[in-house]
């Protein structure tokens, strides 16, 4: 149980490429992208062990990583479902009916925003940011892929195709 997290060779390679974008001795700059890489490798969330491993790999303080991980909303520090659904419900989308879409999904998956389904298949992110697709509202991202001009039918089809 107490074993350290080991970053895969593949991820190490990707992280090395990130580090190269920055001047020497600025490996701290690579934290954000590295966290996204490692999160992808770890079913969508980051653990303290991963943070520790990354801190050692990038030679930064562990708390530097923890600070960043909790600041940015796309990094999850708690376990979440496999597929992340984020329904934009900011003003533009709201005006075009995003609230109905969201409550439909909540009902369909039997969860509230911020929760994951029991089978861990879906995580319904509490998306507060505007996802910059205002001219395609209502819209959602499923695993970061955009689905725009949603209707309830469309949503059903999309969710079926993922299950």
């Amino acid at each position: 149980m107490n074993e350290d997290y080991i970053i895969s060779d593949n991820s190490k390679q990707l992280i090395d490429d990130v580090v190269k974008k920055f001047p020497n001795n600025q490996s701290r700059s690579a934290i954000i992208e590295s966290l996204l890489i490692l999160q992808h490798e770890n079913n969508g969330f980051i653990t303290k062990k991963i943070m520790k491993a990354l801190a050692i790999y990038l030679t930064v303080h562990e708390i530097d990583i923890y600070e960043v991980a909790t600041f940015y909303t796309m990094i999850n520090v708690h376990p979440v479902g496999k597929n992340t659904i984020a329904v934009c419900n900011n003003v533009s989308c709201m005006l075009r009916g995003s609230d109905e879409i969201l409550s439909h999904i909540e009902k369909k998956l039997n969860i509230k925003v911020g929760q994951s389904t029991k089978d861990n298949c879906f995580y319904l992110k509490d998306e507060i940011e505007c996802l910059a697709a205002c001219n395609g509202g209502p819209m959602m991202q499923v695993n970061h892929k955009n689905y725009e001009n949603l209707t309830i039918d469309k949503v059903d089809k999309i969710l079926e195709s993922i299950k």
Binding site: N90, V91, S92, E129, C130, A132, A133, C134, N135, G136
Partner: peptide, 11 residues
């Protein structure tokens, strides 16, 4: 970083 609600030009 385009995130201002209502803005979707840069994307």
């Amino acid at each position: 970083d385009e995130s201002e609600p209502g803005t979707c030009k840069d994307r």
